[in-house]
Amino acid sequence: MKPELEQLADSVCAKYDYDAVNLLPILQEIQRHSPRNYISEEMARIIAKKLDITESRVYDVITYFSALSSEPRGEVIIQICNSTTCNVNNNRDLIRWFEEELGIKVGETTPDNKFTLIFTHCFGACDVSPAVRIEDDVYGMLTREKVKDLIAAKRGAVV
């Protein structure tokens, strides 16, 4: 077992008294501190042990909630809304712009593991629809130019 995984798990679980009732916030916090935005199999095993619950319960929760992932993802997650209002407002251009700018299709991660582009359901930004969520921030009423700038800014943020 990797000591840094142990350490992360311990620091988060301790905050929540090692009580499995808090599994959801524990997983969310651990995922936030994981570079690839996911809970690895090894980490899931560690968490199960620390909280004295079965691994299958940990996986049940990870796979149930869309904010949690059991697969590695990009460092920056871009979620395009594909719900009712955004469809009515024709989000197809927006989808294309992001796909072109990132050079990937929805559902994929860029080869440098920087970005993951996915569809998501309404995140309550229908007043600026078609909307996109980049990490925790919401953007709407975008143009081709603005999409380019947003991605460039996020790219710049790493180097």
Partner: peptide
């Protein structure tokens, strides 16, 4: 404050309780 984790059904009372108990929200 308790944060959901991206599940529509968790808006239903029982599913919400389940998720707050560290289980999948059914």
């Amino acid at each position: 404050l308790f944060s959901g984790a991206g599940s529509y059904v968790c808006g239903e009372g029982f599913a919400m309780c389940e998720s707050m108990e560290g289980k999948s929200g059914r």
